[in-house]
Amino acid sequence: MDGRRRNPYELTQDTPVYVISVAAQLSGLHPQTLRQYDRLGLVSPDRTAGRGRRYSARDIELLRQVQQLSQTEGINLAGIKRIIELENQVAALQARVAEMEDALDGAAAAMRQREAAVHASYRRDLVPYQEVQQTSALVVWRPKRQQSD
């Protein structure tokens, strides 16, 4: 989540709104198949206070994906469960990478600010030291003599 307060009436992909009969109709599966998938942990809908299942739009999409993998690709339910777990892990890792990139960007910006502050604090009245080249020239100084009147 992005840290902002959400409107409690805002519908998102994760809002559990569909009862099992509607979810079955939307996914093209039998309600008993949805119950089996829930028992196996493939698609776990939210529950109401009375323990009734409530499916979200994301759950419906996942049900369709499970059906496609099972019927079209011929993958067994254990394989599908592993695929779903790995996809969830990848999504979690991608979210973590995005968080770390944001933190890195913030740290880099803070470092640039501190560096600018250090440079701004330099004394500008000092002249940087430069090594003087030595020569073999000889300079003779003779003071002027005072003349008497």
Rank of each mutant, 00 (worst) to 15 (best):
Y55R: 13
E10W: 02
S70N: 00
P45K: 09
Q89M: 09
L26K: 15
E61P: 06
R54V: 13
A78R: 07
L11I: 04
D149H: 05
R54N: 13
A24P: 12
V19N: 14
A49M: 15
R96I: 12
L11E: 12
P16S: 08
D38M: 14
E101Y: 05
R58D: 08
Q147I: 10
Q89F: 08
Q133V: 11
A24S: 10
M100S: 06
L34Q: 15
V66Y: 05
A92I: 15
D105F: 01
A116M: 01
R4G: 05
H30E: 15
S136N: 13
D46C: 11
I84W: 11
M1E: 15
S136G: 13
T135L: 03
M100V: 09
Q71Y: 02
A92F: 07
L138W: 07
Y129D: 05
I60P: 04
A117I: 03
V22D: 10
I75H: 05
E99V: 11
N76V: 01
E101F: 03
E131T: 04
L86A: 06
Q25P: 08
V17G: 07
E85C: 07
R47D: 13
P45G: 12
Q134K: 14
L63Q: 05
Q32N: 10
Q130T: 05
T15A: 02
R54A: 14
G50H: 12
Y9L: 15
A108L: 02
P16R: 02
R124M: 01
Q147G: 05
Y129M: 07
V139C: 11
L63V: 04
D102F: 11
L29A: 06
I60S: 04
D46L: 13
A95L: 10
A120S: 01
G106W: 02
D102E: 08
Q65P: 04
R142F: 07
A57N: 07
S44W: 15
G28D: 10
E73I: 02
V97N: 06
R54S: 10
A49D: 15
D59Y: 10
A78W: 01
Q32E: 11
R6K: 12
A49N: 15
N76A: 01
Q32K: 14
D38E: 13
A107M: 09
L34E: 14
Q130W: 08
H30A: 13
V19G: 11
R35W: 11
S148M: 08
T48S: 14
P143A: 06
T33I: 06
L104H: 11
R58W: 09
R6P: 13
A137P: 11
Q134G: 12
S121N: 00
Y129A: 00
R5Q: 15
R64W: 05
W141E: 15
Q13A: 12
S27N: 10
S121H: 02
Q133I: 07
